[in-house]
Design a protein around this nucleic acid. Structure first.
Length: 254
DNA sequence: ATGGTTGTGCGACAA
C-alpha cells in the first residue's frame, strides 16, 4: 500500500502528469495540493473512469486540496473544523482504516509579514485539529505541503535560509509541536542523507543546480510507523516538460 | 541579484 503527497501547482495544467504518475507508480492514495481550480472544474469523470475515487476541496485561482484513491473514501471532512478560513487548505478522510489529513500549509511569504502571522496562527489551529484527530484515530497519516524545512539538513544553503521563511524558529517550533504529539517524520525514519529535496524554485535553474528544500512531508502516528516499510521522494516528475515546482513524496506500508 | 519563473487570467498577486 502506497500513499503519496504532491503539490501540483494547478491540477488543470498537471492532470496528464498526475494520471501518468498514478499509473506508473501504482500508488493507492494520492494527496494533492494547490489545485488552483474550483470544484466544478475538478476532473472527476476522467479520474472515475480510470477507477479512482476522489474527494476534493477547491476554490478559484488559489489553494485547493484533494484525495485520489483506488479504495473507497469515507468520512470526508473539509477544512479545519471550528476555524474560519476562506482558503481551502485541508481535506481529511478515512481510507482502508487509516485516517488521512491532506494539507496545504500557508506559505507565509516572508518573516514578519501579515501572511507570516496568518501562517503561525494557521499552524496553531492545525496542531489542535491533529491533536483532536489523533485522540480518535490511532492510525493517522498527515501529509502535504507543510512549507516548513524541519532542519538545516533539509535546505541547500542553511546560512542563507537562517531565520527566513520556511526555516524560522517559530515555524520549526510548530513542526516540533507536531512531533511532540507522537507523529514521526516518515522520510527521516529511512533516510538521514542531506540534499533530499521535494521543492525547487522555478527560477535560476534551481532544479538543475540541485538547489532545493524539503518542505513536503508525510507525518505518521506510531501505529502507522509499525506498518511503514519505506518513504521516498520521487524526483522523476520534476524532470517533466512543464513540471510542478514540487515532486511527490511516497510512503509504502505493509 | 530588491532579480529570477510559473500559474491564474488579462493586471496583479501568489508562490
Amino acid at each position: 500500500m502506497q500513499i503519496a503527497t504532491w503539490n501540483v501547482n494547478s491540477l488543470k495544467v498537471r492532470l496528464p502528469q498526475v494520471i501518468d504518475w498514478l499509473q506508473t507508480s501504482n500508488c493507492d492514495i494520492l494527496a494533492l495540493q494547490e489545485l488552483k481550480q474550483d470544484n466544478d472544474n475538478f476532473p472527476l469523470k476522467e479520474l472515475n473512469e480510470l477507477g479512482f475515487h476522489c474527494a476534493f476541496n477547491g476554490q478559484k485561482t488559489y489553494n485547493g486540496v484533494a484525495l485520489i484513491s483506488k479504495h473507497p473514501i469515507h468520512n470526508i471532512t473539509m477544512d479545519i473544523p471550528n476555524y474560519t478560513d476562506v482558503q481551502k487548505r485541508v481535506i481529511s478522510a478515512t481510507i482502508n482504516d487509516i485516517r488521512i489529513i491532506c494539507a496545504y500549509v500557508v506559505n507565509g511569504e516572508s518573516v514578519g509579514s501579515d501572511k507570516y502571522s496568518y501562517k503561525l496562527e494557521w499552524l496553531n489551529q492545525f496542531h489542535n485539529y491533529i491533536e483532536t484527530t489523533l485522540e480518535k484515530n490511532e492510525k493517522l497519516v498527515v501529509l502535504g505541503d507543510f512549507n516548513i524545512a524541519p532542519n538545516d539538513i533539509d535546505v541547500y544553503d542553511p546560512l542563507a535560509f537562517a531565520e527566513q521563511i520556511l526555516c524560522s524558529t517559530p515555524e520549526r517550533m510548530a513542526w516540533n509541536n507536531f512531533i511532540t504529539l507522537g507523529l514521526h517524520d516518515s522520510f527521516r525514519l529511512f533516510n538521514q542523507e542531506p540534499r533530499q529535496y521535494s521543492w525547487w524554485d522555478y527560477r535560476n535553474f534551481a532544479f538543475k543546480r540541485k538547489l532545493g528544500v524539503r518542505i513536503d512531508h508525510i507525518l505518521i502516528s506510531e501505529e502507522v510507523r509499525q506498518l511503514a516499510l519505506k518513504c521516498e521522494i520521487d524526483i522523476t516528475p520534476r524532470r517533466n516538460e512543464r513540471p510542478s515546482d514540487h515532486t511527490p513524496v511516497v510512503i509504502t506500508l505493509k
